[in-house]
Design a protein around this nucleic acid. Structure first.
Lengths: 106, 106
DNA sequence: CCGGATCCAACGAGATACTG
DNA sequence: CAGTATCTCGTTGGATCCGG
């Protein structure tokens, strides 16, 4: 491991970090597509926060935004396949975090 | 994946995030043990920052601090085996981050 | 030599009000 | 319905000074 690889790791961490990143990914992963639906499924999030999250995620190719040209206010979001390439990492984070709770609580 | 698992993942992210966490882990991984050595191997870090990092990491059982009772100011640090359980995650972060650079730069 | 304490700056998060 | 703009605030990161 060298300094360049550290920067790669930090880039990846940046993509996953932040208070709402994981909850938004979960909501989309669970099949929610509409803005309002997504917001309501995440306790505590505001429209403002969700708006910012989706913009950043779109820039990072994690999310696809699709607006129906015939019904201009009908918008749907979905995770990209690229975002799904994160799942193995997320899973290993979950497993490590579960064990970590036990270690810290002792 | 549910909300509880998201919290586990966020706990794990918390352990790995922050500007200096990964560089410090790397320095220790590379065999550096003395406070001054570690600080000098990480460009840009201050003693103050390193001090805080090591304290937090010790609390999370990532680092072991050993003070020689005969030479009170001779202190050595090393990663715990527990910290090494993070390596698979770090490696997958590095690999994903490397690919991500290519995706974003296009 | 190995830090702790204190104070300041930068950034991310949130509340609120407003728009097409 | 689906957002955006702005402002405030708390947290994290950093500089500097001080002490065992």
């Amino acid at each position: 491991m060298d300094e360049k690889e550290i920067r790669y790791a930090q880039d990846a961490l940046y993509v996953l970090s932040g208070k709402w990143r994981m909850p938004v990914i979960l909501a989309l992963h669970n099949g929610l597509r509409r803005y309002r639906e997504i917001a309501q499924s995440i306790p505590g999030i505001t429209f403002s926060m969700l708006s910012k999250e989706l913009q950043i995620m779109e820039l990072n190719n994690l999310v696809l935004r699709m607006e129906d040209p015939d019904f201009p206010k009908h918008v749907e979001y979905k995770l990209t396949e690229y975002c799904e390439s994160l799942y193995p990492i997320v899973e290993s984070l979950v497993n490590w975090g579960r064990e970590h709770r036990k270690v810290i609580s002792t």
